[in-house]
């Protein structure tokens, strides 16, 4: 337990560093030097020194962002807690709590977007909603399946794949960053924010990436079958590795369009889920 808390705190502090690394690696793929590794920390710290400009619907907004952050921290804490004994041994309560929390995060993001009186932000919010509808159910099903510890090797590996894809979607990266799509929405959901409020939004987007990477790392490590402290350590180490993979994937792809993204996700995830059901049914 203590170790889980320590791991969670460490990861929270490291998340902006991972994000800095992400930017550095992306820059390398762009053949340039890129920012210092601590850049995301610098950005966040700077935002907190700026004046507070409360946007329209500001009170709501602040509350929603705070809740969102709390939910993110809580969900990453649950993940680290589960990490200490492997995903296959998670209790139903923990699994449900995690799934509810991720849905809460997504919903709050939409509320946050819609609470701002800006058309770009609203479009962004609705896009986020459509994406959530297409990714969350699969995330929930695969998570629950893996948590139940049931199923054959084949079905477990398919479930892990579904979890990996849907957790990538919730990280808000290209091609699924359509809610903040810069060209058409001018950074969408964040357009009205400034200063510390934007700082909070930045932290929450970094934490989203952390939860996403940790989730995949956890699934993979559990798949290998480690447990105890070694499992926790492995997850902590695997998280930046997964983050790195996410980085590379997002750098070499382009942004999708809301209809294309959803169609693609449904096709892919349906295919995987059918394989999952089939393998379960056949007991492979």
């Amino acid at each position: 337990m203590l170790y889980s808390v320590a791991a969670a705190v460490l990861s929270l502090a490291l998340a902006p560093v991972y994000d800095g690394l992400e930017r550095k690696i992306r820059a390398a793929i762009h053949t340039r030097i890129g920012p210092p590794i601590l850049q995301t920390w610098y950005d966040i710290l700077k935002l907190f020194t700026k004046e507070i400009v409360v946007p329209v619907g500001g009170a709501w907004y602040t509350l929603v962002t705070a809740l969102e952050l709390l939910a993110l921290i809580a969900s990453s804490a649950i993940l680290y807690h589960i990490s200490s004994y492997g995903l296959g041994h998670a209790t139903l309560l923990e699994s449900v709590a995690f799934i509810v929390l991720t849905s809460v995060v997504a919903t709050l993001a939409i509320v946050r977007a819609v609470s701002q009186n800006n058309v770009f932000s609203v479009v962004g919010g609705f896009r986020e909603f459509s994406l959530m509808l297409s990714a969350e159910p699969f995330l929930a099903v695969s998570f629950l399946l893996l948590a139940s510890g049931a199923g054959s090797l084949a079905s477990k590996s398919i479930a892990t794949a579904v979890l990996a894809v849907s957790s990538y979607v919730i990280s808000g990266r290209v091609p699924y960053d359509i809610a903040e799509a810069e060209p058409e929405l001018a950074s969408g959901v964040n357009i009205e924010l400034a200063g510390p409020l934007l700082g909070l939004a930045t932290i929450s987007s970094v934490l989203k990436k952390l939860v996403s990477a940790t989730l995949t790392a956890l699934a993979l490590i559990s798949f290998v079958g480690l447990s105890g402290l070694s499992s926790l350590t492995a997850v902590v180490i695997a998280t930046p590795v997964v983050w790195l993979v996410h980085t590379v994937v997002s750098t070499i792809l382009g942004r999708s369009r809301v209809d294309l993204a959803i169609r693609f996700l449904y096709v892919l995830l349906f295919f995987l889920s059918s394989a999952l059901v089939l393998s379960f049914g056949l007991g492979l």
Binding site: N117, V119, F120, V122, V123, F126, R127, F129, S130, L133, S134, P183, E184, A186, V258, D259, I262
Partner: peptide, 23 residues
């Protein structure tokens, strides 16, 4: 391609966008 103002033709206002879910 500068700032693109989005107007909904039905309401005629610059505020609300209808989005058919899951299209």
């Amino acid at each position: 391609t500068d700032r693109v103002t989005v107007l909904d033709v039905r309401s005629g206002r610059k505020s609300f966008i209808r989005l058919k879910q899951g299209v």
